[in-house]
Computed example of a mutant assay.
Amino acid sequence: MLLLAVSIIASLSIGSAGISFTDVWGILLHQLPWLRDQPVSWSEGEIAIVTQVRLSRVLLAVLVGACLALAGSGFQGVLRNPLADPYTLGVASGSSVGAAALILFGYQAAVGIWTIPIVAFITGMTTLLVVFWLARSSAGLQLETLILSGVIIQAFLGAFVSFMVSLSNSVVNQILFWLMGSLTMKSWANVYMLIPFLIIGVIVLIAYAQHLNVFLLGEGQAAHLGIRVERTKLVVLACSTLLTAAAVSVAGVIGFVGLVVPHVIRLIVGPDYRLLIPLSAFGGGIFVLWADTLARMALSPKEIPLGVVTALIGAPFFAYLLHRRKRLEGGA
């Protein structure tokens, strides 16, 4: 929590507008009810940049990161596999198909700001069910087959999204920019939209944390100990899919958050999901916040897509973790 607070303070203080640290926090403190009547020396543009653009973007980065990391911890807990996350199982690609189709045909605001999250959840959940159907056999649900099915579906849906991009003319840049992931041009409305999804996700996953701990013993042992295995899997996976759909609908495709963050938290605090789930939310927020800060400042005033930054950071780091784990197991 302290690291998240420091990250928020640092990110709010950094920007391409050239507003000093003291001015940024003077503007923010001036928003307090008992200080609003004090005379100010800042322009309306500076106040708008800090309160309407920078503050909303920082909070949105934290919320998106928390949603993706929570979703990753949920998938890894149910499937008992640290390589499982919304992207390896194709859920994010399924959500992307729904969102890209809405953008292509111009229906992204059919029922207001909730249009893309609703459709993204439906297509993401449908994708998850298809992956489970492909992976299921007479011997049950094998984890290796499940991951392979997710990779196949992800490749197919990725090609389908590329096909829709080739069909688009006036919205091609909008779809491509969304597929690369970005928090540019987002507002407080997106922040308010994500908050209920995150609250529901945290409550549900923490309620099932002890069940996920028992899952570490295997589904057979969990059933013998009184856990309703199928219901637990359905609830946790549906909740994780909902979190993924919400994050994807707002920020686009941002990879490696749900894969790397829960894995790193697990190395620090162990496999207890009563700690892993809430700390993954904090870790995901910190990771995406700093990735977004780097995205908007590295080549300022030009901005790097957020999904590109998370991949450039996450892929080598996860490769290092895998190498470290293999070396430790070899030594053992």
Score class of each variant (00 low, 15 high):
6 V>E: 07
251 A>Y: 08
157 L>C: 01
8 I>D: 01
152 I>H: 03
149 S>H: 05
313 I>K: 03
151 V>C: 05
272 D>T: 02
265 I>L: 05
47 I>T: 12
8 I>K: 00
13 S>M: 11
75 F>G: 01
73 S>R: 05
132 F>A: 08
212 L>E: 05
179 L>T: 15
202 V>M: 12
183 L>M: 09
2 L>N: 13
271 P>T: 07
295 A>M: 03
2 L>K: 13
227 I>P: 00
193 M>G: 00
116 I>A: 01
183 L>F: 11
157 L>F: 06
51 T>P: 02
246 A>L: 10
67 C>M: 14
141 L>M: 11
197 F>Q: 00
269 V>M: 09
241 T>L: 07
209 A>E: 11
30 H>Y: 11
213 N>F: 09
107 Y>N: 06
123 T>G: 01
156 F>G: 04
327 R>Q: 15
115 T>M: 03
291 A>C: 09
149 S>N: 04
19 I>A: 03
13 S>W: 09
222 A>F: 05
205 L>F: 09
9 I>P: 00
74 G>C: 06
315 A>Q: 03
209 A>F: 14
162 S>H: 11
99 A>N: 04
277 I>M: 01
324 R>Y: 14
220 G>R: 10
34 W>D: 10
295 A>T: 04
301 P>E: 08
130 V>G: 03
1 M>K: 11
298 A>C: 07
10 A>V: 15
95 S>P: 05
290 W>Y: 15
120 A>R: 02
93 S>A: 15
242 L>M: 14
6 V>M: 13
201 G>W: 04
279 L>P: 00
253 V>W: 05
290 W>A: 05
264 V>C: 04
233 K>D: 08
12 L>F: 10
244 T>D: 07
234 L>K: 10
51 T>V: 15
32 L>I: 14
321 L>P: 01
268 I>T: 12
187 S>N: 15
57 R>S: 11
104 L>C: 04
173 N>D: 15
215 F>L: 04
155 A>M: 12
24 V>A: 01
6 V>Q: 06
248 V>P: 00
47 I>Y: 08
87 Y>G: 06
33 P>D: 08
144 E>Q: 13
37 D>Y: 13
218 G>M: 02
284 G>I: 07
283 G>K: 03
2 L>T: 14
316 P>A: 08
292 D>V: 06
185 M>S: 12
42 W>G: 02
15 G>S: 12
92 A>W: 05
258 G>F: 01
248 V>M: 03
238 A>Y: 10
155 A>K: 05
306 L>W: 02
114 W>C: 10
26 G>A: 06
21 F>I: 12
4 L>C: 06
216 L>E: 13
35 L>N: 11
226 G>H: 10
35 L>E: 11
118 I>V: 15
42 W>M: 04
142 Q>M: 11
193 M>L: 14
92 A>K: 02
220 G>S: 13
231 R>H: 14
236 V>Y: 06
63 L>Q: 04
149 S>C: 06
314 G>V: 07
167 L>H: 03
64 V>P: 00
52 Q>K: 11
263 H>S: 08
122 I>Q: 02
22 T>H: 11
9 I>D: 02
237 L>G: 00
177 F>D: 10
275 L>A: 12
148 L>V: 13
185 M>C: 11
